[in-house]
Simulated scan of single mutants.
Amino acid sequence: MPGLDELTRLLGTPSLHAHAPTDWSGTERYVGSSLPSDFKMFLDSYGPGVIADELVVFHPQGRTPLLERMHKIHGTWTEARSQHPADFSYAFHPQPGGLISWGYDYGGDEHFFLPCDHHPDSWKIVTMAHEEGCEVFDGSFSDFVIAFMNRLQVMDETGNIRPAVPSFEPY
Rank of each mutant, 00 (worst) to 15 (best):
G3F: 04
E6W: 02
R9H: 10
L10V: 13
L11N: 06
G12H: 03
H17D: 13
A18M: 10
D23M: 07
W24C: 00
S25R: 12
L35W: 00
P36K: 00
K40T: 00
K40S: 00
D44R: 00
D44I: 00
S45C: 04
Y46Q: 12
G47I: 03
I51P: 03
D53F: 03
D53A: 09
L55I: 14
L55A: 08
V57E: 00
F58P: 06
P60G: 03
Q61W: 03
G62D: 07
T64E: 13
E68H: 08
R69H: 05
M70W: 01
H71P: 11
H71F: 09
K72P: 07
I73W: 01
I73C: 07
I73Y: 00
T78Q: 12
S82V: 03
S89H: 10
A91M: 11
H93P: 12
Q95R: 11
P96F: 07
G103W: 05
G103L: 04
G107D: 12
D109Y: 14
F112W: 08
F113L: 09
H118D: 15
P120G: 06
S122F: 06
T127I: 15
M128Y: 15
E135L: 14
E135Q: 15
V136K: 05
V136F: 08
V136L: 02
V145G: 01
I146H: 06
L152K: 10
V154Y: 06
V154I: 10
D156Y: 02
E157C: 14
N160Q: 12
I161E: 12
V165I: 03
P166D: 09
F168P: 02
F168T: 00
